[in-house]
Design a protein around this nucleic acid. Structure first.
Lengths: 240, 240
DNA sequence: GTGATTCATATGTCCTGACATTATTTGACA
DNA sequence: TGTCAAATAATGTCAGGACATATGAATCAC
C-alpha cells in the first residue's frame, strides 16, 4: 500500500484504487474484517477524513460494508455497482463479436413535433435525425431512431457511422451525463417485422431515451426497438 | 432556512432537504446562480464541510451543478436522480388507484434447482415459493414468481399478501440493498396468456431479479412477466 | 445460569484551519 | 483598444481534533 504524494491524483483516489485492488486480488476475501479507518490513517500517515472518503467510495461501489460500532467488512459477495444498463449486445462485444451498424437514414433538418417536445424544443425546430439498423453477423438485431438538437447539424456521416454517437457529442463539448430510459415491449409494425426479420408473434423489446448534459439540457432523444432473442437489459438497483 | 440543532436529523441532511425544497418551490429557477458554500456556511453558522456535504447530495441527485472557480448553479432542467426502477404500476399507485395482488400459490418447501442456483444455494435446498397475480381493477397485469432462501420459511400468508415482501424480509433483519434485474420480452405460454387475458400476438414484458442484502447474501430470486400495455420500466442512467 | 449494566471498539457527525487548482475579472502597459 | 499579468472568487483536497451513537463483549448482580 503506497501513497505517492507528488502525484496529481488525489490521495483518497489512490487509496481507493489500492483498496479495490487488494479486494479483487483475493488477498482479502468475502466477509473478511477490514482494517478500521483510524488504524489505516495511522499506518498510511493520512488524515482520517481522507481515508473515510476512500472507504466511502468502495462502500458506494458495493465492495465494502460498514456498520457503526462494529466495523468494516468486505462484502460477502463482491458486487460491483454499475449505474448503467447493459444488454446482450454488450455481451457480444465483450465476447469479441463485431456487431455492425448500418446507417439507413441521416437528416440534418427534419421537423418532428414529438421528438422536439421530448428535447424541450419548439415543435417546428429542425432536428438532426438518424435511423440505424444493427446486425450481429447476418442477423438484424435492433432498429434505432435518434433525434438531436440543431446544434449537432454539423455531424458528419463518418462520425455517425464509425464511432459512438455520444463520443461525437462529447467532442462538441456536450457531455451526456444522465439519461432517462423507458423499457417496454410491443408488437412490431409490418416494416419493423421485415427489417428485423421477425416471424409472426415475435415481440419487440423497446427502449426510448432522453439524454441530458451536465446542465440538464437535452442532447438526444432515442427510440429503439430490439429483437428480444438478441437483447435483454441488465439493471442494477440500489435501495437507499 | 432554519437548522434545528436539537433535532436528531443530521445538520447536513436538514440543509439538503431545505435546499431541495427551495429549488422545487420554484423560488430558485433553472440556471440560477446558487449561493456559494462559504457564504452559506457563514449565514447558517455551519461548518463548510457540513454545507459541502449537503450540496454534494444535491449534486448527486442532479439538482445542482458545480464548477471549480465558477460556482454552483441550479441545473437547467431539474432532474431527480432515481436509483430505482419504476413502472406504470407505480404510476397507478401514485394516482391513487388500488392495484390488487392475489396470492395463487405459497409453498414453504419447494425444490427448484434453477432458483436455488440463482440464490447461490445447493440444488436440493428447499426454498420458499410464491406465485402472485396482480390486477388493476378487473384487468390482470402481472404474474410474479418469487423464490426465497429457507430462512424465510416462517413467512405468514398474512405478511405475504398484506404488505411488501421486502418489508417482511427487513422485519427479519435481512435488508435487500441491491438487486440485479434483467428486463426482456418474449411470447407468453398458453397458461400465461390465459392468466393475463392476452390475445394472440400480445407480447410479455419480463423481468427477473436477484436481490442481495448488505453482506452480499442472496435473499430473493424473482421471475415476473407483465402485460406490456400495463407496464414499462423507467430507468435513470448516469455516465461517470 | 440469566439478565442487566458497563466498557471497549468502531463508525458517524461536525468543527476549524490551511493550501491547491480553476475560472473570471480587473488593472497595467504598449 | 488589445494583450497580458495579477488579483479575486469559488470549488477541491487534506489535515487534526472533538464528541455522539451503535454494537458486541465482558462483567456484575440476582
Amino acid at each position: 500500500m503506497v501513497i505517492d504524494r507528488s502525484s496529481p491524483v488525489p490521495l483518497y483516489h489512490q487509496l481507493a484504487e489500492q483498496l479495490t485492488a487488494a479486494i479483487e486480488s483475493g488477498r482479502l476475501g468475502p466477509g473478511d474484517p477490514f482494517e478500521n479507518e483510524l488504524a489505516l490513517a495511522d499506518r498510511l500517515d493520512l488524515s482520517r477524513p481522507t481515508v473515510r472518503r476512500a472507504i466511502a467510495d468502495l462502500v458506494a461501489r458495493g465492495l465494502l460494508v460498514r456498520r457503526r460500532g462494529v466495523g468494516t467488512r468486505v462484502a460477502s459477495q463482491v458486487i460491483h455497482r454499475r449505474d448503467e444498463l447493459t444488454s446482450l449486445y454488450d455481451d457480444m462485444v465483450r465476447r469479441g463479436q463485431r456487431p455492425l451498424t448500418v446507417l439507413r437514414r441521416f437528416e440534418r433538418e427534419i421537423v418532428d413535433p414529438r421528438a422536439a417536445e421530448c428535447l424541450g424544443l419548439p415543435e417546428a425546430t429542425p432536428l438532426v435525425f438518424l435511423e440505424r439498423l444493427r446486425f450481429a453477423g447476418e442477423t438484424p438485431t435492433a432498429l434505432m431512431h435518434n433525434w438531436l438538437p440543431p446544434q449537432f447539424a454539423d455531424l458528419t456521416t463518418e462520425e455517425v457511422t464509425s464511432g459512438s454517437l455520444y463520443a461525437a457529442l462529447r467532442a462538441r463539448g456536450s457531455r451526456p451525463v444522465i439519461a432517462h430510459q423507458t423499457i417496454g415491449a410491443r408488437r412490431p409494425t409490418a416494416a419493423e417485422r421485415k427489417l428485423l426479420a421477425l416471424v409472426a408473434g415475435d415481440p419487440l423489446l423497446t427502449m426510448s431515451r432522453r439524454a441530458y448534459d451536465g446542465d440538464g439540457g437535452a442532447v438526444e432523444f432515442g427510440d429503439h426497438c430490439y429483437r428480444c432473442d438478441q437483447y435483454a437489459f441488465d439493471v442494477t438497483v440500489h435501495e437507499r
